[in-house]
Design a protein around this nucleic acid. Structure first.
Lengths: 342, 342
DNA sequence: CTGAAAGCGCTAACAG
DNA sequence: CTGTTAGCGCTTTCAG
């Protein structure tokens, strides 16, 4: 009578396990584990025999099982807006390098600026028990993370503050940078200065707008509503905003662009004009030097590195109160911000 | 006598498990599992009770355990050169979107163009049992992956072919694109055309060089050694190459830049010159339109998407022979490539 | 120096 | 509809 063989799905395509290696090498399971993990206390000869079995079988340790047992995944998660954005690529890379130095892998996810997607991603990462999390928030309420953080997932917020919870943050000085950029335009003789920024629910957008208002007020300039436009960074929207501000009886003579995407579109929109319009953009852009675009630059790599270093300090046991780090920005004059009003 | 309580490391910061939820809800473990996974066959009332316990305890399923049991991680790995490079950001994002559509997470890793680091990363991903792998090779020998692929990790190579193993590949038409670009320069009257490319061990670099040679030969032009320079894409190196080619009694009148980084440096190096030098670059670049740079463009997002779709087709069971997909490139004339020799 | 036993948290398989 | 049992592949513990 044939025994009813239950034949469960072959796991991982029938990979050899430590048990298989042990059988082949004629040693105990734990000895294989020792060899695989380079633990001391194994005879060189035994090591060799085990190693041979490993090579012959093509064994590779299953980290899923290891993780289950050890409780650490040696991985961290990074949730950002869009990896295709030239600001986030370098940031992510910088995080990766720090993670690598700590023996951890990085799992990236793009929220596409959608709060629900942010949450979905973050919770998926929590379910995988990443050791830590770096989040560039899309939403403004992160209470859903409270339990996770309490349960031990270290979290650092980057670029924008966390919403309604107390946590570590690494930000750029959006307010100060914007204020400086606008003051720079004012110093070059401009009064009617337009501000085109990202959607008002994004913290950096409102901070940069605040910097604009402050600079204008400091100079005694009353801001007109038509000089300010917040909204999507879609080229069409930005282009229309530029055109609106440059038309009418009293057009602006200078523009402040609230982020890299706005700057790019603004440059394109201004390119065809006969009368030059001054421009300062927030965030540096590749080739901006050749185009002579004056910018407020923030160091994306430094932001990422700083955040990751904080995260690993937490993972290494630092348990001080949440910190808020603010990184400075830098004005880089290249011509477009030094044009005088025509 | 107090019982010796073994107190192992609190795992995951003492998170509740399904067992805890079951106890609290007064149901069996499996019922909790059913609720968590939205499996059918549970009374609405029971679902509610379990759900309450889940919320009260802040339970979140531990995917590590799930993975161990199910044998699928619902994650794929992507090993590329450098996430900070504007070519790879969009590529990675495109892969992520496809992965997301299939319910999988993406783990990124940068090889920094170092074959050892590539291998280290790939094997780390294999140890985590990613379901599939997309690799932009840094090295030229991927036999180390044979066992892994046989063991069931679907793998697609991108941008450059796999070395010494037979596997799926998605490439851009480097040869054809380069040939077209150089022919374009020839058609505009150039004969002395320089080629500056990446290191010769990189497949795309030699393919693009081959396109250059073919275009030159087709036009009956004998290429001089001094017109060709392969090597690091470091700005200093590229700048020196540009300057060498433009000096001497018979300077080149046009340059073909082998990739985006070379193009950027070439543009900078040419910017100060009084005599214009024609330029065509491989890869499109942000703002190249405004600078009037003629390029051979490849669609990074399409490359990533195509590769990811192939990968998931494999994961869904497709087991045809390895395929080699070649995506076309496109010449985008913007001025720099249409300059005539001075 | 080596190995047997227990168990990480979950899901598959089977009974009730 | 619900619960019990076994076990995924590894590390931990403890006994040789």
């Amino acid at each position: 009578m044939a025994e009813t063989t239950r034949h469960p799905e072959p796991r991982y395509g029938n990979r050899p396990t430590m048990k298989d290696v042990a059988a082949r090498a004629g040693v105990g399971l734990k000895t294989v584990s020792r060899v695989v993990n380079s633990e001391p206390g194994v005879t060189p000869d035994t090591v060799r025999r085990v190693q041979e079995a490993i090579d012959a079988l093509g064994f590779r340790r299953n980290d899923s099982a290891r993780v289950l047992r050890k409780g650490r995944t040696a991985s961290i998660g990074l949730v950002l807006e869009d990896l295709a954005d030239p600001f986030y690529g370098p940031l992510s890379r910088a995080v990766e390098e720090v993670a690598r130095a700590h023996g951890a892998l990085l799992i990236n996810g793009s929220s596409a600026e959608d709060p629900e997607r942010e949450q979905e991603l973050v919770l998926a990462l929590c379910a995988r028990r990443v050791d830590g999390l770096i989040v560039i928030p899309a939403g403004d309420d992160h209470r859903y993370l409270e339990q996770e953080i309490r349960a031990g997932i270290a979290t650092v917020f980057v670029d924008r503050p966390a919403g309604r919870i107390d946590a570590d943050m690494v930000l750029s000085d959006s307010f100060g940078g914007s204020r400086q950029g606008v003051a720079h335009l004012i110093a070059h003789g401009h009064h009617r200065i337009g501000f085109i920024g990202d959607q008002p629910r994004i913290h950096t957008a409102t901070e940069r707008l605040r910097g604009y208002h402050t600079a204008m007020t400091d100079a005694g300039i009353a801001v007109q509503d038509s000089w300010v436009s917040l909204g999507s960074t879609e080229p069409d929207r930005v282009r229309r905003a530029v055109e609106t501000m440059l038309s009418g009886p009293e057009p602006v003579t200078a523009l402040f662009a609230g982020n890299n995407r706005v700057t790019v579109t603004a440059v394109r929109a201004l390119a065809g004009r006969e009368r030059p319009v001054a421009l300062v953009g927030f965030d540096d852009i590749e080739l901006a030097d050749l185009l002579g675009i004056t910018v407020i630059s923030q160091d994306a790599a430094a932001v990422g590195r700083t955040a990751a270093e904080h995260l690993f300090r937490r993972l290494d046991g630092a348990d001080h109160a949440p910190v808020r780090v603010e990184l400075p920005t830098k004005l880089i004059p290249r011509g477009s911000g030094e044009l005088r009003p025509s």
